[in-house]
């Protein structure tokens, strides 16, 4: 059986989601997608500066075969996130939406409460909702109830490249979630992506680490390979640390008395 990632009613063979932020030039995005095989990529929606020179259209760099995942970055409330989702859908970006609501401007950590509210609304409207959250078992259960298509806990703060700082909590979400778990944010190296996949994550989303690499296409390829390796290791059922038996039997010796 093919090992595919299911999101809503769609299936993907690649478990690496990528983002379009922070690239030195939009022209790097196409080659990165080709090299990584990523089938889902995030885009953001912003006000145009009417006084600035015309901007290059980022969508023209993304092949039709790749699914657009508009995010709601910039939203500070559920209401704003819902509005951005509506605009994205009406602008022809499809039904996928990454909910990102940030009210904490100091650490840029997501607001789980507003995110849940937006998820409830948008899932009812038929969106395939991928909410970006602080790793929290309870929120992951509630997102399932709200109709989310996946839960996207952060590995560490956005753009930090710190890797899986939230590992124990993500582990618990993976063990309990009925939804696919996509580790989003903070993954700075392919080894960290592999680690997330070995743990049993269903996918990872990597943006900054690829976009700011010296060679973005090779970085994309490296992450794709790491994701595949981590997934294979997960399926292979790797052994853990050694905890060899001790010689004496202080706790169970009585059974032989």
């Amino acid at each position: 059986m093919e090992d595919r990632l299911a999101l809503g009613d769609r299936y993907f063979s690649s478990r690496l989601l990528t983002g379009t932020g922070k690239f030195a030039s939009n022209s790097l995005i196409g080659p990165m997608l080709a090299a990584s095989g990523s089938q889902i990529i995030t885009v953001a929606l912003r006000r145009v500066d009417p006084k600035a020179p015309p901007q290059d259209n980022i969508l023209s760099h993304i092949p039709d075969t790749v699914t657009l995942l508009p995010n709601t970055s910039g939203a500070r409330t559920a209401k704003e996130a819902v509005r951005i989702a509506h605009i994205a859908r009406e602008a022809g970006c499809g039904d996928f939406i990454k909910i990102e609501v940030i009210t904490d401007m100091q650490y840029l950590l997501p607001d789980n409460h507003e995110t849940l509210k937006a998820t409830e609304i948008l899932a009812k409207e038929g969106f395939i909702v991928l909410p970006y959250v602080m790793p929290d078992i309870t929120i992951s259960r509630r997102l399932y109830d709200a109709g989310a298509a996946a839960v996207m806990p952060l590995g560490s703060p956005i753009g930090s490249n710190l890797g899986l700082e939230m590992k124990p909590m993500i582990q618990r979400i993976i063990e309990t979630s009925k939804l696919p778990v996509i580790v989003d944010a903070g993954i700075g190296r392919p080894s960290q992506a592999a680690e997330a996949m070995e743990m049993g994550a269903d996918a990872v989303l990597v943006n900054t680490a690829i976009a700011t690499a010296r060679d973005t296409a090779i970085a994309g390829r490296a992450f794709a390979m790491a994701v595949t390796a981590g997934r294979m290791a997960y399926h292979a059922g790797m052994a853990g640390h050694s905890n060899r038996a001790r010689a004496s039997s202080p706790l169970t010796g009585f059974l032989r008395e």
């Binding site: 124990p168 582990q171 853990g240 905890n243």
Partner: peptide, 14 residues
């Protein structure tokens, strides 16, 4: 059995 014990020992991995 040893493999299961090795994995379960830390209590982090279910």
């Amino acid at each position: 059995v040893q493999k299961t014990l090795d994995r379960g020992a830390g209590g982090l991995k279910r």
